[in-house]
Amino acid sequence: MQKDLSQYTLRLADSALTMGQRLAEWCGHGPYLEEDVALTNVSLDLIGHAHMFYQMAGAMQEPAVTADDLAFLRDAHEYRNPLITELPRGDFAYTTLKQYFIDVFNLYLYQAMATSTHEELAAVAKKAGMEVKYHLARSEAWCERLSLSTDEAKARIQQALDDLWFYTPELFETDAAMQRLTAAGVAPDYATIQQQWQQRVEPFMALCGLTLPQAGWVATGGLQGEHTEHLGFMLAEMQFLPRAYPGCEW
């Protein structure tokens, strides 16, 4: 159980960290000041979630390691996030739609996890879940605004949908460790989350006047540590300082 949970919390942490890092790249590049602040605020929350999950994961390892060790001293093949969270930030429409997909996923994920039989996981999920509500209110409103505004905005968000749609099924992938945790009431049931996600996202895409792509390559591999080349570049930048100056602190 301990080993399963340590692996699972790493997937949660890696997903939140890579999302947070991509959003942080918007710092100073947002379309206007308030949005710049919003993007980095959401980033900070996600990095906070990653920190809580890394602390849990690190405490369960033998010997115990710190959250920083896990974030900064593992290579790409040791990361367990789904591919969608490591994709480059793209334009604002792409970032917004990706954020919306992840926010809806996180909403149902943390809602279910808040009733986990594992007390610490439940507490962290409650905390994260409260913050995700704000994230979703923002990304949902922006998806609608972009989709129903100028031709340029609409074309860009439709392009983002075409590019991103087949990365979303990977969010609901599970492995044997996760399935054991779900059976034990520790992790949520991902099939249920997938249903909830589809029931919310698909009608909303229609409301936005967006067309779901019919066929494409369906992403997979993150759970096994098989990533896109983008993750390596992200880690090279993110991990440079702790690797160049081991043990340094602010």
Binding site: G20, S43, L44, D45, L46, I47, G48, H49, H51, M52, K127, A128, E131, W250
Partner: peptide
């Protein structure tokens, strides 16, 4: 306890 999970003021 933290206010927001990523709150840098906690340090």
């Amino acid at each position: 306890i933290p206010t927001y999970s990523g709150c840098p003021a906690m340090y």
